[in-house]
């Protein structure tokens, strides 16, 4: 990865704290996010946990500006999201969307938008996610794990200060999971703020500095990872950690 990516000491402070103020979001008459308020201030990885239908992906989409809340505000260091703030974010989706081009051209597409990276930088990124040797291969022919790694590399082309990931390691082989986790840890050390949805409690234990737990569109718990796994302050979170069904 380029030196520019390793040296951005204070960039993250431009987006933190991230504050959700009384957010509600409805779709087709259903309230998917219900009066949610929280402030994310940590530099570490924030993990969002919760059963299916809890509203985790919607929360990430609202944060990234893909959907707009019906009520409430999302503030980045007291400023509502604008184009400049959005340019500092990147998102990796659960289903990796591959442009119908080669692996390298998938990165080049983003590089051309931002004019931030040259070919050697893109090749370095591919090397970092273990896809250097497949740079000329059609992206759609990659395996699921490789696609997700390419998605992550593509998200990093624009050098985001805030990286949002929606279950990027779901259904991946252990090697891909390990590679993605290792890359996320490196990014976090380089001051990239990471917010990450997962269903894997062990992964949450490995990576999280703090944990957001959601249930039926509500914020049930927002604690440091240590507190969350030792003394969850929600009965639903406790049941979730114990692997029980939550209704």
């Amino acid at each position: 990865m380029s030196d520019s990516h390793t040296q951005k000491p204070d960039l993250v402070t431009q987006l933190l704290p991230i504050e959700f103020r009384s957010i509600s979001f409805n779709k087709s008459g259903n309230r998917l996010i219900n009066n949610l308020s929280l402030t994310i201030n940590s530099l570490g990885i924030t993990i969002i946990l919760g059963p299916n239908g809890a509203g985790k992906s919607i929360l990430l989409r609202l944060l990234h500006g893909l959907d707009k809340p019906d009520f409430g505000d999302i503030l980045f260091k007291d400023i509502a999201a604008n184009y400049a703030i959005k340019r500092k974010q990147a998102m990796v989706f659960q289903n990796a969307v591959m442009l119908r081009r080669s692996v390298k051209d998938n990165l080049a597409f983003v590089a051309n938008l931002h004019a931030s990276k040259q070919e050697p930088d893109l090749l370095a990124l591919l090397d970092e996610v273990g896809l250097y040797d497949k740079q000329h291969m059609p992206a759609r022919r990659l395996s699921g794990g490789e696609k997700q790694r390419l998605s992550l590399a593509r998200a990093l082309v624009a050098e985001p200060e805030l990286l949002l990931l929606d279950e990027p390691t779901a259904s991946l082989d252990p090697y891909s999971v390990q590679m993605i986790e290792s890359l996320l840890t490196k990014l976090q050390r380089r001051n990239t703020k990471i917010i990450f949805i997962t269903h894997d409690l062990n992964q949450a234990r490995r990576l999280a500095e703090d944990v957001i737990f959601m249930h039926k569109g509500r914020l049930e718990s927002f604690q440091s990872a240590e507190d969350f796994f030792k003394n969850p302050n929600s009965k639903f979170a406790e049941a979730f950690i114990e692997g029980k069904l939550i209704f």
């Binding site: 893909l66 989706f93 442009l99 938008l113």
Partner: peptide, 16 residues
């Protein structure tokens, strides 16, 4: 439909 979210995430203009 397939690319929409990705392009919005990347701030891709309509013409591009």
């Amino acid at each position: 439909i397939e690319y929409k979210d990705l392009f919005r995430s990347l701030n891709v203009s309509t013409s591009k």
